[in-house]
Structures are given as C-alpha cells and as structure tokens.
Design a protein around this nucleic acid. Structure first.
Length: 806
RNA sequence: GCUGGAGUGGCGGAAUUGGUAUACGCGCCAGUCUUAGGAACUGGUACCGCAAGGUUUGGGGGUUCGAGUCCCCCCUCCAGCACCA
C-alpha cells in the first residue's frame, strides 16, 4: 500500500476545507454556541513561532472537538496590527507600516492554513483598518462622554528610547514593556482612562471567573486594594495641614516623624518657612533626576532631608513631630505623605536608624533590633493601651471621625490608564482643540479620524501626526473656527480591549457590534493566550466590559469565562528562543519535513500545556511514528467474522476506556495524556489479531481534532464521503468499560508481594482466601499472627500481620 | 520580602476520592530482516544485588492497614510583583 505522504494529504484537505467553508460559525444554527478565542496575534515580520503553534493547536483541538460534540463553535482570528514594531521597521527600511503589516498578515494566514487550524476566516478583523479603528475611536468617545476619559498634566512614565508615554502596567519594574529601557518620569499632559473607578469590581468579580490562580493573584496584587485611615495633621504655627494615609492607625502613638514625597504639592507652600531651604531644594532636584528604577529597585539606602522649622501635630498626642522629605515615599500613592512609626515599620525603622530619630514602641513585642510589624497588644498608647491592634484600629478611626480630622479610606495601587502615545502607528485620539471652545470631541458622524500617510515616522517625542497639516489643522466642529487636532494616538491595548465583541459582528458599520449578535456569541467560553497579559490586556478588557455593562450595552460583566495560558516554549538549551541567540526553530521547516499533523501532536505531547517546556527536535519522531502506525493499521482492516468480533471483546474494552480518557482529557486541556492514551490504543490494536473498521473509525475520530489531515484522509480511504470533522464524537459505553476480571494487588504489612486476578464481583472472603493461598503471600504470613485484613474491591488487599510470640 | 507554582528514571513526563509509583514517548541494550542502515519490527530497560531480597517520588518529622498524593518544619528551582505606608 501507499506510504504516508503528509505533503500531498495536508494540502489536499486544507483546500477542500476552505472551499467548503467548513469552520464558519453558523449564525442560524439552533445548536448551543461555544466561543473559543485565541489572543489575536501581532503580525510580526518573523511570522508564526512555536508558541503561536502551541496556542492555536490547543484551541483548534478544542474547537474541533466541540463541533463534533454538536456545538455551534465560533473560533475566529484577526490581527492586532497597530503597534511599535511595524513603525520601527518602517523607520529602518522606509516601508510604510500599512504595507509591511499587510505583507506580514498574508504570511501569517498562509502559515496558519498550512497547520490546519480550523479558524473562521470570514470574521477576520484588522485593528489597523479604518473600519475597525473607527469603533476604537467610538469607544474613546463613549468613555469621554461618561467621564471616564480625561486629559491631565501629570508625572508620567516616559520611555526615552520609544519616545512615548507609557501606562503603569507597561512600565513595570521601571522598564519599558517594549524595549526594556529605563523609564523616567516626565511632566506631560496626557489622556487617561479612569480604570480606577472600577477597581472594586475588577477585584470582586475575579471570584466569578475560571482563570489560572496565578493570573487571578497577579490582578489582585496589581489592583492592590488596602483598607486604612486617612487623617490630617496640622502644621504648628500655620493654618495648613498634611494629610497622611496609613493601614496601621493602631501604631499612631509611635509616630516620631512625618515624611512627604519630594514631589508633594505642599512642599512649595512650606518652603518659605523652611530654614534649610537650599538644602531641601537640592534634595528635590536630585530625586526628580532619579529614574523610577533608581528610586525603587536600587534604592536600598533610604535618603531624606528634614524640613527645619516645620513641625506637624499628632492629633492623638497633640505632640509635634519633625517633617522630612524622602523619596522612599511615593508621590502618587495615598496622600503622598506618611506617618512614620519606626518601631513597627521596616522602612521607617531603617530611615530612623540612619537619621538618628527616636523610636517609640507602641505594640508589645518590639525588641529594638528590628521593626516589629505584626499586630499585637497596644502599649504607650494612652486610653488605647491594652487593646489588640484590630480593636484599636476601629476605635481610633471612630475617634478621628468624631474629631473631624480623619476617616476610613480604601486605597488602590492601580492608577488610571495612560493611553496617549506619541507615536504614529495607532488609532488617532478623536479630539479637537479650539481656542474658543476648548477640548471638543470629534462628533461620531465624523469617525473615523483617518490616520494620515504624509508623515515621517521618526519619533521625536512629539507625535508624528502633527507634521501632517491636513490632519493637524482643522476647523472646530462646534464653532467652525480654526482649531487643531489631537496628534497623539491611542495605546494599542485600547484596540485589543474590545476586539472580542467585534468578532460577533465583524462587518457592522452601524455599531461596534449589534446587541443581538453579542447576546448570541458572548461571553467568550474559552480564552487562550500568553500569561504575560495577566495585568495588561486581561485587565483592560475586563474594564471595557464592565463599562459596557454599566452603560447597559451588554448584560454580562466578565468577558472571558475561562482563561488558559500556554507555557512558553524555550530553546533546547533552556534559554528563550531569540534571533540574537540564533536558537529559533521555524515551524515551517518542521511542517515541511514532518507534516503539520506531526508538529501539532508533538507540541501537544511535549508536556502539560500550561508548563514551560524546552523544545526538543529529536523526540518529534515519536508522534511521527505514531501517525505512520495509524496509517499502516488500515492494512489490517479485514472483514471480521462474528467469531473474531467476539475475540475482540478485549479490544472493545480498551477502546471504550480510551474514548472516555480522551474525552475527559480534552475537556481538561490535558492533551499530552490524551495522546498517550491514543498511543496505548494503537499498541493494542496492532497486537490484536484483527481490527474491525468500526473500531478503526472510532480511533480516527478520537485522533481527528489532534491530527485533522491524516484522520480525514484515512476516514475517506475507508469509504466515508462526508468529512470526519462533521461526524459525531464517539460516546463511550459504560457497560463495556466494566471488566469481568480485575487484577488486584496483595500487600503484606503495606508491602506489595503479589497480584491475583479475580472476578470483578468477588466477595471479600473469596479474595482473602485466594490471597492467602498464594505461595508468595504465604511466605510472609505463615507463622505470623494475622491482625487485620483490609480489602478494597477491585484494587488491593492488605494483610496486616504481627510477630507471633512463640 | 510578598504572591502563585513546581521538585518523580539517562531525558520529556504519567499516576481517579490516599490503594500495584515510574504509564506514554525519546534514548539506550539485545535480537530479527537487510549489501547496508541514522529505516522497520520483536523483546528488555527506576536503582542496588548473581539471587532471595532490599531501596526509591528534594530533605526531616507526623497521621494511616497503606502516603508522590494529607498535616508540620526545612531546602532548592521557576514565574510575577517589589519602599503601595
């Protein structure tokens, strides 16, 4: 018989599936829907890498399985096409991003089709197309109208290399998310989305979703809810006061000084009264020069300067304490000022030691060697002494409230989302500035605000769009006078915050998606993509969904019911694959040599989907052999006689066990074990005297989601005319799984000594008798005192013996 | 430091509610067929031991008839956050 030639088979079926429109989601179907989504790719010039293949194979398997199970599956694909790399490429080569992006998309499509991914190509979207970004701009206006988009001057993260502002989430650890350069703080007027309004919902609703625990934890940490007290301290001899925020109001009697962030707005006011003015000014200057990285990660040594002549009054003790500036206090968290309790806070302790400030313990347990930060019994705290921390916090907060000098306060580390980018390749922010009318949003009817082409992309720190006269110089939509257009573009994460709605209704030119279509398809049932988006895309998208819910566009509040992350695929040396290391494996070559089916199987067989895995090109031969054997098995199909069918009882049991195993494993995304179960099945089928075509077809169906081409080919070769991918998923027969005989292990004192085969329904006494009759058991039991026998039906018998004192 | 996760053969990794640890695959060893094979097939392969047997799931305790799995302590590794008061 012919040999397994993956090249001709794979091409043949890919073309057929495409012309048949096999994987298009059906708008009119009455079947229950499933929305299976991948984090859509950025179409980079490098093309698909092994991580993409892993991601899309997993969702492809799941989608194909669900279709066979009888679901109406939507499994769309699109392009997250705006972004820095295309622009940087344009700067280097002079090729317009629009052109290079489209070339890259073509390449991606060819690669994805070559891997047999069952995407619905009729719903393809491209965030850089005007038909799409028109609605991205519409979302901006929606947020603007509802007070959720605002412009303000603020210290923002600024990447000197990318020459643009960045959101907090994109400047983690003080490094630019894109280029890993150090981020500095710059005073700029920028647009923000008020994601902080949704901080509580974003935390609380995490309980509603089925997400990886680490991702949920990361979002919780990032949002960083903390409950405490804000209170004000009057400044001695003035009518001004300093507000401070603390979660440990129970330690307030131990406050020995106050620290303000160097950028605290009050500093300027106080400066006139400060005696060491020039010293203070010098400190402020030095600390603003520091990068975020220097202030945080590297700032092990705390620095500060006292404001001589300034004293703040502790409202509880009425005693004055000195006031410092210190850049270990962050200007943009809480009130930008803290009460310092060195006895019970590590940072304050360190600072107090360095500047020789007094340390007053107010929680029992402080021994002077280090800060005692645990809760405990209050001491030296006036009327609050003797209380436990928790009680004291309540009582003190009430006291402050009654004195009208403080209140309970919840703070978040989450900041509003800075969305202005001083870059070219993004959706223009739809706002116009008029000298008469001020800030005027572009009217909806004028959308999209088209991205101009007549600009130089080189980033200068000012948006390139400003160079385009036709774009920049406009008339005010309100008064018709000369005005200028906002020239910044939006963060690309804005584009990807709503794309999963668009897939439900990708061609709609009246709305971002119709309510009807959204209700039909959303929310996403299964969302798969990299874990690096845990606090970026996944949080922004949740924010958008919550806004739509609140404004009654939709009736659910979480977009992604289940999220799964594929683990990163490393090079065989355990390092990241990268061009500079020259250790990148190109999937094209593997498809060419081994076939798409083999590559798909191999990536899934490498290990648990969510684990990080090192690539191994040597072991791909295993899955290839498996497929070869599946191919050859066709030769073994014979017209089976009734007699032989009877002999095949054993195979029947194994087959049905495999159906159950593969089904369960696909449901739980445990593809590596599903494949191993199929390998075991084929081992058995090869050993069996005869394989019926009925058995073989069931095997092919199990294999179909994993290796769609070869299973389709073999399915057709055994005489089927309709696609295997439209055939129903096999159902396991519980009665066939029950075996008539079982092997049970015999233990003596917990040690395995022998096994016996008994009827599945054998009584305990029978098993016991049989076990004791075994020589290998008798050897350990004879002459001993049998103290106890534990029988677990179908599994094990444990005979507990003791030494007989003879 | 905090949060989340993981430590099982030469390697990737399996193990329902605690119930035969090392499935499946790679590699390796032996054999068959071949002019030859880096092809295919058959058998073997946790470790020590000739064997009987003993020992093994990062280390140490514990619960249990029985622990990779549950509890306590410790070590190591990975990922994320990192002066958030």
């Amino acid at each position: 018989m012919d040999s397994y030639d993956h090249k001709s088979i794979e091409k043949k079926w890919q073309d057929k599936w495409e012309s048949d429109g096999m994987y298009c989601a059906d708008e009119n179907s009455t079947k229950p829907k499933k929305y299976v989504l991948d984090m859509f790719p950025y179409p980079s010039g490098e093309g698909l890498h092994l991580g993409h293949v892993e991601n899309y194979t997993a969702t492809c398997i799941y989608s194909r399985y669900l279709r066979m199970k009888g679901f109406n599956v939507m499994h769309p694909i699109g392009w997250d096409a705006f972004g820095l790399p295309a622009e940087n490429y344009a700067i280097k080569t002079g090729i317009h991003p629009d052109q290079s992006t489209h070339q890259n998309i073509k390449n991606f499509i060819a690669q994805m089709k070559g891997l047999g991914f069952s995407s619905d190509w009729t719903r393809e979207i491209d965030t850089s197309s005007p038909e799409y970004y028109r609605w991205t701009q519409w979302f901006f206006l929606l947020l603007y109208k509802n007070g959720l988009a605002y412009k303000k001057k603020a210290k923002v993260n600024w990447c000197e290399s990318c020459k643009t502002g960045l959101a907090n989430e994109q400047a983690q650890g003080g490094l630019c998310e894109r280029c890993k350069n150090t981020v500095i703080q710059k005073d700029l007027e920028q647009w923000f989305f008020k994601i902080t309004d949704y901080a509580d919902d974003l935390i609380n609703d995490l309980d509603k979703v089925d997400w990886p625990s680490s991702t949920v934890a990361q979002q919780r940490n990032w949002i960083g809810r903390s409950e405490g007290v804000e209170f004000s301290m009057s400044i001695d001899g003035t009518d001004t006061s300093i507000a401070v925020y603390t979660t440990r109001i129970d330690t307030v009697f131990g406050m020995t000084y106050v620290v303000l962030a160097p950028e605290h707005p009050l500093v300027e006011t106080l400066l006139s009264a400060v005696k060491n003015k020039s010293e203070v000014e010098g400190y402020i200057q030095a600390s603003t020069k520091k990068t975020e990285l220097e202030r945080t990660e590297l700032a092990k040594e705390k620095t500060g300067v006292v404001l001589e002549g300034i004293l703040a009054i502790n409202p509880f003790t009425k005693k004055p304490v000195p006031v410092f500036l210190g850049d270990y206090v962050l200007g943009n968290y809480g009130t930008g000022a803290v009460m310092a309790v060195p006895a019970h806070d590590e940072r304050d302790f360190e600072f107090a030691k360095k500047y020789n400030l007094s340390i007053v313990p107010v929680i029992d347990g402080f021994d002077g060697s280090e800060a005692y930060i645990k809760d405990g019994t209050l001491i030296n705290s006036g009327e609050f002494s003797g209380m436990l921390s928790e009680e004291a916090r309540e009582k003190m907060a009430s006291w402050l409230l009654s004195e009208e000098s403080g209140f309970k306060k919840v703070n978040y580390r989450l900041r509003d989302w800075l969305i202005s980018r001083q870059r070219y390749w993004g959706a223009p922010i739809p706002v116009i500035y008029c000298t008469m009318c001020g800030e005027v949003p572009v009217p909806e009817k004028d959308l999209p605000v088209l991205l101009p082409k007549d600009v130089d992309f080189h980033p200068t720190g000012e948006s390139p769009l400003r160079q385009s006269k036709s774009f920049h110089e406009v008339l005010c939509p309100k008064c018709g006078m000369k005005a200028t257009r906002e020239s910044d573009t939006m963060d690309t994460f804005v584009c990807s915050s709503w794309y999963y709605f668009r897939f439900a209704d990708p061609k709609n030119d009246k709305e971002f998606a119709s309510r009807e279509k959204i209700e039909k398809w959303l929310p996403v049932d299964m969302y798969m993509g990299g874990a690096e988006h845990a606090v970026l895309h996944l949080m922004y998208a949740r924010f958008f969904t919550k806004v739509l819910k609140k404004l009654d566009y939709i009736d659910f509040d979480e977009p992604f019911l289940k999220v799964c992350h594929q683990g990163m695929i490393l090079a065989s040396d355990g390092r990241k694959m990268s061009k500079s290391l020259g250790n990148v494996i190109n999937p094209n070559e593997l498809v060419e040599k081994f076939g798409a089916d083999t590559l798909r199987l191999h990536e899934m067989f490498l290990g648990p989907l969510e684990d990080m895995k090192a690539w191994n090109s040597d072991t791909i031969i295993g899955p290839r052999r498996f497929l070869e054997r599946a191919w050859k098995l066709k030769n073994k199909l014979q017209q089976t006689t009734d007699n032989e069918q009877q002999e095949n009882q054993k195979l029947d049991t194994i087959l049905h066990k495999t159906i159950k195993k593969v089904t369960d494993d696909i449901e739980s995304f445990s593809f590596n074990t599903a494949i191993s179960a199929m390998m075991m099945l084929i081992n058995e089928m090869e050993k069996a005297p005869v394989v019926s075509s009925e058995h073989y077809e069931i095997f092919l169906k199990l294999l179909a989601p994993f290796a769609p081409h070869i299973s389709e080919e073999l399915w057709s070769a055994v005489g089927n005319t309709e696609s295997i991918h439209l055939s129903p998923w096999p159902v396991f027969d519980g009665t066939k799984i029950v075996e008539s005989e079982v092997t049970i292990a015999i233990q003596v004192n917990g040690k395995m000594r022998d096994t016996i085969v008994v009827p599945a329904d054998a009584e305990e006494d029978v098993i016991k008798g049989m076990a004791l009759a075994r020589p290998a058991v008798a050897k350990w039991v004879d002459g001993k005192d049998i103290k106890k026998v534990i029988v677990v039906k179908g599994k094990i018998i444990n005979i507990v013996v003791g030494e007989t004192p003879l």
